[in-house]
Design a protein around this nucleic acid. Sequence first.
DNA 1: CCGAAAATGAAAATGATTGTCAAAAAGTGT
DNA 2: ACACTTTTTGACAATCATTTTCATTTTCGG
Lengths: 134, 134
Amino acid sequence: MSTRREAVKQALNHSTGFRSAQDLYADLRAEGSKIGLTTVYRALQNLHDSGEVDVLRTDDGEAVYRACATESHHHHLVCRGCGKAVEVEGPAVEKWAESIGAQHGFTEVTHTVEVFGTCAECAAACREGSGKRT
Amino acid sequence: MSTRREAVKQALNHSTGFRSAQDLYADLRAEGSKIGLTTVYRALQNLHDSGEVDVLRTDDGEAVYRACATESHHHHLVCRGCGKAVEVEGPAVEKWAESIGAQHGFTEVTHTVEVFGTCAECAAACREGSGKRT
DNA sequence: CCGAAAATGAAAATGATTGTCAAAAAGTGT
DNA sequence: ACACTTTTTGACAATCATTTTCATTTTCGG
């Protein structure tokens, strides 16, 4: 429904990587929107509740969001340089998690799996001198 | 060296699960220590830097720590009821993560993997009526 | 015991996130 | 268009974990 929520979704769609609420707020304001920070947070909560965006925590505890292409269960390969994220699947991991849980008598088993690395572009940028960011 | 740091390490050893800095501070004060909150945070940073404790983030962004038995790379199976954690290994997962990274041209690949579930005790406690906590 | 360096902790600062609440917007039936 | 209810919005204050600051205390080598 709401326009604001759509605006946030859009802003998220324009990025290949994970963005924080504060990032998105800055982006939207930069392009002229009069949206408030509170609304960005609320929109992200909604979008997450309805499963339209994925969320994860950075090392320093900040929540970052991403609009993912697939609805189905997946994980991410995230570049720690530019933040770019690739959606990946790992059937083997799913089975492993289930099995580990079962072995120890745990039920309702879920898991969080994220893979981090330096993407080819960032590695190249870093190697060729300055270490600039894209 | 420092006594305070040892105290924090001890407090951590007494728990089977992950504890937050605030939890540990409360524990230590409860048993009569005059330690300050700041020192608990500093001790945990040190312990983490030296690899003596593992850290992860709860869903609401709080950092929680655990003194692990093994020095080697491992993951955790955590009970979302009582917080109890079991150290587990997943060679298959390590290989998968490496391979996924390589496939997409990523280098210096690392990963975070945590498995959550309800342990047998908590499931039983929940089933037998009240849903009490241990 | 003396002084330098490290450790400590109280209180203030930071920064993300959430709560409050009144104003603005969107609907709804007339 | 109109009065009226419901939802959405956003400025601002409040929360809460974590970090900084800084003066004091402790630890140690000599």
